[in-house]
Design a protein around this nucleic acid. Structure first.
Length: 935
RNA sequence: GCGCAUGUGGCGUAAUUGGUAGCCGCGCCAGACUUAGGAUCUGGUGGAGUGAUCCGUGGGGGUUCGAGUCCCUCCAUGCGCACCA
């Protein structure tokens, strides 16, 4: 009999040889806690490795089985790196500011700080269950003053900096002031703005004017932007909260309203954000998404003279990437939002234009986006082609966006699909400038056609004409070469309570930063979360706050998450956001794990903040994440019952015929596979279905199933706590990995977890048998056993290194199956396996490690070293194909040459049968792989 | 509409470089042990056929001695979006 001791206050002894996962896991979790097993030092002789998870927003719903997927993957990798001799930083924290907590506060009157705290405690309990190796001493919460003090501090650095176009770097604003004092606004390092002045003029400006000008350059700046304003609710709504043009709650109308907003000048970093992608390991898909989002394009801005009845507007400026098509312009299109519309519309078209604008205003962005049908209206005005004076009608249509370029395009139907459809729809005549390349049916966006009908460009290849046209436009002073970006500056303020306050005071319309020693500017306690007047945030309702002339907006969710990876390095520092020597030690995040939904938001913002902090000398690297791994979503597998319409009778799935039935979601937690637990169902939802009657097949009620998003409303969420309780954390961890590749989305299936649990039990039985007790021994291993071990070492090491955890779990299973077949209970084979298993199933590994008589923790054991000599083979079972179809296999020595192999193959009776006496045309022999006989 | 991703047994998946398709697990079938099994163990399990064989990686086409893998095209599903000129 073997003995498991549980180091409790009242120590109890359990005599057992079974795999007692509950006591084992509790014992070691307590032990690791007491011994600070996961504490990570900032000073170490070991090489560093930084593994980071995207930290969670602590929602009230708690964790479901989809959440820990990435955490388990990163935990396995962290433990693996630790065994390999690295000092591994693997922290966790909470992205704790956010809208849901505030919404909950509005509805239930519970302060966001309170509910957030409760949610965090709940999350923590659930996370601890799974046995992660997080260093909890480094936990951060973005909503704590000790944290957001530094979020505010970094904001001030951005506020006090501008982007020097010459050096392409964030630079203290004082240097810009100096530049203005010396040279005025004319300098290559200064971007163009609405203001142009000499040094003398600058000095003559009053402070207010100077500040207004500086605001044009600050990396964090104040401007005006449109928001979703809901008059009835008196508040600004997020895009999420607007459905079909009305508020999600209450269905009140939502309109665009211009409000003062903070922005981050991320557009200045566009080129560096593109360039940086070459130096980091993100998936090609992710890089592509970021590149598309930034959307750099080369083109020209061209001014077209406008001819309208009122003659109020002289020019229409358009942006185009294809100035070479200027003679193919058949109409212009301007965005419905443009102010000039009023001034150019003709009397005849006025009603039609107004109607169209009203129509557009009634439509949400979403509708406009998904719209396939073509709409638009002629304005009644014309633009003149600058080269030949031809009149071009100006149209208004929602397919042109006000926010991009100049909000106006020159439409070339023969070369652009959307323009083409528009022209066809409104019967606008189409000019063909590319001859046979345009078939009259579909536009052709080629750049390689030779231009026709194009005046001085005739005979030129389009690609070459682009530069020629721009040069000519520039000579004439009616156009300029222009690089454009789709990306816009990031809106950085919210009219909400539960976020970081801005460390900004307003005096006479000028924003002044608080000084560093006034930080943190604490979020004041409030009783009401109602919006302030005129769309301002709830802080505007606090008299003391307003009296101090403090900014009433708060920062958005992504403020805290844009730099948290730095705070983990030095979380308790109250002198700096992170000591430079510490960030120099840890450097970049080596592996960052999270979902693709952050592809263009968080991942771009945090890259920008990192670059700015780098420019200003606060950290030594300008890309936060060296490598990114995207985890897939775990989908829910919903279960349904079928109730015959108007009755209380439920029909089993297999017996469904033509009856009209209601398909009803049932809670997956009382369905075993597909079989419904009818009693549990009757008790469900306060016995709503207590009177249910069932039509069964083979005495069972079989449910229907569908794969959907995992969510409470679909009753398909599965709580990890239940599974850990039933099967143990080790089983749960391995099963989540066994489900499939980390980066692929797949449905959850609770049923399969038993297979992994069986595996761990089988593994345990190699050491301890239910009847015989200890079965492991010190016998010498055979060649076959060594081979199994080293094959496994190789596979596990390679798979873990490349994040292929599902195949690694499978390799463990194969190994245990083979050792069981060999009846191998030998310590010299089993002990290295225990170490290999440690990252995946740390609890059982630590237990067996101790039981094998080892001192110290398995967490720091030496990782087994693969030796190729155990895997050397002398023969190979070759697949023999005839004309590419497998016909047989033959064991052939690996030493033989091609002619020798050919002789063996041709002598084989199966091959001879297929040859039918003919001579093969050729024999393909790939040594160590296969043989193919071609007849 | 645009962008990205994914399609392999009843299910989750495997096949690392173009070289034996279906490893491992679930489920299912049969059996052993058992008072019993939702425990454990053993064997079987892509489809058709008595069989030799044939068919099979979303559909169609192509390249190749050989294609799940490469190319073209179509279809379906999921996710994202700011119709990006």
């Amino acid at each position: 009999m073997h003995l498991i001791s549980i180091p409790d206050k009242d120590q109890i002894l359990i005599y057992s040889m079974e795999y007692q996962f509950r006591s084992i896991e509790k014992k070691w979790q307590d032990h690791w806690k007491q011994t600070n097993a996961y504490k990570v030092p900032n000073v170490s002789a070991k090489p560093k490795f930084y593994v980071l998870d995207m930290f969670p927003y602590p929602s009230g719903a708690g964790l479901h089985v989809g959440h820990p997927l990435g955490y388990i993957a990163s935990d396995i990798f962290s433990r693996f790196k630790r065994l390999k001799g690295f000092n591994v930083l693997h922290p966790m924290g909470y992205d704790a500011f956010g809208l849901p907590a505030e919404q909950y506060a509005i509805e239930h009157g519970i302060h966001p700080a309170v509910s957030t705290d409760q949610n965090i405690n709940n999350f923590r309990k659930q996370l601890d269950n799974i046995g992660f190796c997080f260093d909890w001493d480094r936990e951060v919460r973005t909503c704590e003053p000790g944290y957001y003090k530094w979020t505010q501090w970094i904001f001030l650095q951005l506020f006090n900096s501008w982007f020097n176009r010459d050096t392409q770097k964030a630079t203290p604003i004082a240097e810009l002031v100096k530049l203005f004092e010396e040279k005025g606004s004319q300098s290559s390092s200064v971007k163009s703005s609405a203001y142009s002045f000499t040094a003398t003029e600058w000095k003559s400006f009053d402070a207010e004017k100077q500040q207004t000008i500086l605001m044009e350059y600050r990396l964090a700046y104040c401007g005006y932007g449109e928001v979703n304003w809901c008059e009835a609710l008196g508040t600004v709504l997020a895009n999420d909260e607007v459905v079909n043009g009305v508020s999600e709650r209450g269905g009140h109308p939502v309109v665009k309203k211009k409000l003062r907003q903070w922005y981050l000048r991320i557009t200045e970093y566009a080129d560096r954000l593109i360039e940086g992608l070459d130096r980091i390991e993100f998936s090609d898909a992710m890089k592509e998404m970021q590149t598309n989002w930034i959307g750099k394009s080369y083109g020209a801005e061209i001014d077209f003279e406008v001819k309208s009845e009122k003659s109020k507007v002289k020019n229409l400026r358009v942006y185009t990437t294809r100035p070479d098509t200027i003679f193919g312009v058949d109409f212009m299109v301007i965005a419905p939002e443009l102010d000039i519309i009023d001034d150019i519309k003709s009397a005849e078209q006025a009603t039609a234009v107004d109607d169209y604008l009203a129509y557009v205003k009634s439509r949400s962005d979403r509708e406009r986006m998904a719209e396939k049908k073509i709409s638009g209206v002629f304005s009644g005005a014309y633009a003149l082609n600058p080269f030949n004076g031809q009149e071009i009608p100006i149209w208004i249509s929602e397919y042109v966006l006000a926010g991009y370029g100049t909000g106006a395009i020159m439409a070339v139907p023969c070369g652009d699909e959307r323009d083409h459809k528009f022209a066809q729809h409104f019967s606008i005549p189409i000019t063909n400038i590319i001859g046979k390349h345009y078939d009259g049916v579909e536009a052709n966006p080629t750049k390689d056609a030779i231009l026709e009908n194009s005046d001085f460009l005739n005979g030129m290849v389009m690609r070459d004409a682009i530069g020629v046209v721009i040069d000519k436009l520039e000579q004439k002073g009616i156009g300029t070469r222009k690089v454009n970006y789709k990306m816009r500056d990031a809106a950085f303020s919210r009219q909400r309570y539960w976020g970081e306050p801005f460390p900004i005071k307003w005096k006479n319309g000028v924003a002044y930063p608080l000084s560093e020693n006034e930080l943190p500017l604490q979020l004041p306690y409030v009783d009401s979360y109602k919006p302030g007047p005129e769309g301002e945030g709830p802080l505007a309702n606090i008299p003391e706050w307003v009296a101090k002339e403090l900014e009433t907006n708060t920062m958005p969710g992504y403020a805290g998450s844009s730099w948290y990876f730095l705070r983990y390095m030095d979380p308790h520092n109250d002198k700096a956001f992170c000591d430079r020597s510490v960030s120099d030690y840890w450097g970049q995040v080596d592996i960052y794990i999270g979902g693709t939904e952050h592809a263009v938001g968080h991942l771009l913002y945090s890259r920008m903040w990192t670059k700015a902090l780098y420019d200003l000398g606060f950290i030594g690297h300008d890309e936060p994440y060296k490598k990114l791994v995207n985890q897939g979503m775990i989908q829910g597998s919903s279960r349904f019952v079928y109730r015959i319409n108007g009755t209380n009778t439920f029909v089993s799935k297999g017996l469904l015929k033509d009856q009209l039935v209601d398909q009803i979601h049932v809670d997956v937690n009382f369905v075993d596979g597909y079989e419904l637990d009818m009693n549990a169902f009757k008790q469900w939802r306060n016995k709503e279905y207590a009177a249910a009657e069932f039509i069964l097949e083979d005495g069972k009620y079989i449910c229907g199933s569908e794969t959907e998003k995992m969510s409470k409303g679909k009753y398909n969420t599965v709580n990890p706590d239940l599974l850990v309780d039933k099967f143990g954390a080790d089983t749960f961890r391995m099963y989540e990995m066994f489900l499939g590749p980390v980066e692929i989305s797949k449905p959850w299936d609770t049923k399969g977890i038993e297979g992994v649990h069986r595996f761990l039990k089988k593994f345990w039985r190699l050491f301890y048998d239910e009847l015989k007790g200890k079965v492991w021994n010190d016998d010498k291993a055979t060649d076959a056993e060594w081979k199994v071990l080293h094959k496994t070492i190789k596979k596990i090491e390679e798979d873990t290194e490349r994040f292929s955890f599902n195949t690694a779990v499978s390799a463990f299973m194969i190994c245990v199956n083979e050792l069981a077949d060999l009846k191998c209970n030998k310590k010299e084979i089993l002990q290295p396996l225990v170490v290999l298993l440690t990252p995946y199933a740390p609890h059982i590994s630590e237990e067996l490690w101790t039981l094998l008589g080892n001192e110290g923790s398995v967490l720091d054991a030496a990782y087994p070293v693969f030796e190729a000599k155990y895997l050397v083979e002398s023969t190979k079972e070759y697949p023999i194909s005839v004309n590419g179809k497998l016909r047989t296999t033959i064991d052939i020595s690996l030493e033989l040459t091609q002619p020798e192999v050919e002789a063996i193959v041709l002598g084989n009776e199966v091959v001879q049968k297929w040859l039918e006496g003919k001579m093969p045309k050729k024999i393909i022999f790939v040594k160590g792989k296969m043989v193919n006989v071609v007849i």
